[in-house]
C-alpha cells in the first residue's frame, strides 16, 4: 500500500521473480497478458490457490506473490 503513490505500475513477485504490471489487475487479465491458457495452469496468490471461477474477481496488487504452475513431464 505504501507504494500506491508510485508513478510507474505495481510490482509483484511472479514465479519467484520481480515482475512489473501497469496497474492492479485480475488473475484473468494477467494470464491474458502472459498468453497463458487458463485451462492449463493453476494460480496461487499469496499462498492461496485461486479457483478458476475466481480469476475475474481476484485482483493482483502491489507486492503480491503470484505462482503460476502447469504440468510437465515427471515420474
Amino acid at each position: 500500500m505504501h507504494n500506491a503513490q508510485r508513478e510507474s505500475g505495481v510490482e509483484i513477485r511472479l514465479n519467484g521473480d520481480a515482475y512489473e504490471l501497469p496497474e492492479s489487475l485480475s488473475v484473468r487479465v494477467l494470464l491474458d497478458r502472459l498468453e497463458i491458457d487458463p485451462r492449463r495452469v493453476a494460480v496461487e496468490v499469496n499462498l492461496t490457490v485461486i479457483k478458476r471461477g475466481q480469476y475475474d474477481t481476484t485482483i493482483v496488487r502491489e507486492g503480491d506473490e503470484v505462482e503460476i504452475v502447469n504440468f510437465v513431464g515427471g515420474g
Binding site: 511472479l14 514465479n15 519467484g16 515482475y19 502472459l34 498468453e35 497463458i36 491458457d37 492449463r40 495452469v41 493453476a42 505462482e67 503460476i68 504452475v69 502447469n70 504440468f71 510437465v72 513431464g73 515427471g74 515420474g75
Partner: peptide, 29 residues
C-alpha cells in the same frame, strides 16, 4: 501416467502444454 507440477516459464511460452499431448489419449493423469 504421472506428471510433475512446475512453474510456467513466463518468458518463453513456446514449449506448449504437456496436457495437450496427453488428453487426446484419455489417460488418467
Amino acid at each position: 501416467v504421472t506428471v510433475a507440477v512446475r512453474r510456467v516459464n513466463v518468458q518463453d511460452r513456446s514449449e506448449g502444454s504437456l496436457l495437450d499431448h496427453l488428453e487426446a489419449s484419455h489417460l488418467a493423469i
